[in-house]
Design a protein around this nucleic acid. Structure first.
Lengths: 159, 159
DNA sequence: GCTATTTCCGAGTATTTTACTTGGTATTTC
DNA sequence: GAAATACCAAGTAAAATACTCGGAAATAGC
């Protein structure tokens, strides 16, 4: 399983959704973009995949946006990353056991073991749990403060 | 910590050395290249780094080659990969906790935890242990058979 | 000494992957 | 009908990866 910034962004964005889970409102990409400093266009790509995987659902139009389609407690980090990043095996043969002349190579099992280990770890981590940690709540708080301030500045300078 | 084919090759090559640990002879890159189907030139790059990290030592000239500088039981897979692959953090901020405006981002701890997890796993795996598994021994056996056959064919076709 | 075999070294390069952007269309609310 | 949003397809610039190439230095055996 590959780990790229895309996967990181996906998890971050999903956490943003999870933080607003109770609001019963949809969250617009624009808002996530502001909070997490990712472009809307890039977020669109990411959310297209998240939607296909059934992790989020969307509504269009004003006040539209995305929401989690399942409770945050039931969504694992693994699922999120798996949805957006190409699932790289670390193996040369893509898990087919034909790394070398149709047979396994010396290190085949090593990489499959490692992959499994990573997957297990990430599958044990649920979005809901992470969002509940004090550290995350604190960061989230900071982010909304900052954005509120920015929006105020914008309003003032436009008037 | 990044995981690329370079890292895979390094581990594979080191296993090749470990398999000949008892021989008290040096193993030439040419031999590893044959066994593992990696070009000598590329192996040279990899071994340059392994040498700097003190994992192997070399002698030049005919019958020269490389050997492990420590017993295989004391060398972890982590050390090998760490020696050849750029140590990527999975974090945006390279572990500095300034991912966002000089502060940590929502997912900072998540990625550092994962990195730690992977490192621990790989550090627990010692070259010596892996080389002792039946599967590896079997694959190694196959490899030397195959190469012996090729060498025979070469000799015959050149004469 | 000569030759073959090996490691050592510095560059260069082709391919692939990543991380985006661009320019539009469709849908919905007010 | 205007604004806000999601949706979609393609293109692109930069970086990383996975190598290759052409030599130079050391060493063993003859």
């Amino acid at each position: 399983m590959k780990l790229t910034t895309k996967g990181r962004y996906a998890v971050t964005a999903m956490m943003d959704l999870a933080l607003h889970e109770s609001d019963s409102r949809h969250v617009a990409l624009k808002s996530i973009a502001r909070h997490q400093e990712i472009s809307v266009a890039y977020l669109e790509q990411i959310f297209a995949k998240l939607k296909v995987s059934g992790l989020v659902s969307a509504t269009r139009g004003p006040n539209g946006g995305y929401r989690l389609s399942r409770p945050a407690d039931s969504i694992s980090i693994f699922e999120i990353i798996d949805a957006v990043d190409e699932p790289i095996d670390i193996t040369r043969c893509h898990g087919k056991e034909d790394c070398q002349d149709g047979e396994v190579c010396l290190t085949h099992e090593l990489w499959t073991d490692l992959s499994r280990q990573i997957s297990l770890f990430l599958d044990g981590l649920k979005l809901g749990d992470i969002v509940k940690t004090p550290r995350v709540r604190q960061v989230a708080e900071r982010q909304s403060m900052r954005c509120a301030a920015n929006e105020y500045t914008q309003r003032v300078s436009f008037s």
